[in-house]
Amino acid sequence: MSAKLFEARGLVKRFQGLLAVSEVDFAIERGAIVGLIGPNGAGKSTLVNLVAGALRLDSGEILFDGARIDRLPAYARAHLGIARTYQIAKPFPDLSVRDNVAIGAMFGAEGGVRDRAKARAMADEWLDFVGLAAQADHQAARLGGPDRKRLEFAKALAMQPKLLLLDEVMAGLTPVEVEAAVGLIERTRARGVTVLVIEHVVPAIRRLSDMLLVLQQGRLIASGDPATVLNDPRVIEAYLGRRRA
């Protein structure tokens, strides 16, 4: 078993001729937390969609557990153990919070558990894990913003993934909620899940990540250890510099 769980080689995606993601290469080691940052419109969500299979590559290769997955549809990648959250949460609106998570458990990696009662019991555990147990019987559509993000998180975890893609789960949260989310991600890693965190909020991700990737205008302009990356003059100019201005 190689140390690399995931590898992207030369990813390219165009939208009507415009390059959204251009020649991006990176690898993720097993058990790591990798942060992906970049200004708005840098192509972060497009990258998540390419990895999860919601969008098709124009060229490049994606390897997961040593096998090519870039031609597989989204559901097949979920079966292999890739779970994602959506930047704008996508719950199953009319269902209860518990059933939302139970669906994650009933499908997900290796097709999930078949039994619905068992899936619901598992869902309750995950709801407890993310702190949403009290709302288990609520209709998902009625949840507020932060709770929706927790639900996305629980749903993805219930899929028992090897790799979890978190698309801006901290955006719009209060500092206290950000702290809770950071703790949640660390505890998730402790359970053996590899995590790719896409974020706009830099301070939290700096503490959390073993490695940082910086995307700007579809290109990977820096990658490596967080302290080094954030002191890279190109990163400061391209991303942090502009934020300070």
Binding site: H79, P91, F92, D94, A102
Partner: peptide, 22 residues
């Protein structure tokens, strides 16, 4: 489980696919 898959498709087909529903 079959019915849950159909319901997930009704509620949000993209989200259903990313959860692993074929």
């Amino acid at each position: 489980r079959f019915g849950m898959a159909l319901i997930a498709i009704r509620e949000d087909e993209d989200a259903a696919a990313s959860v692993g529903v074929n």
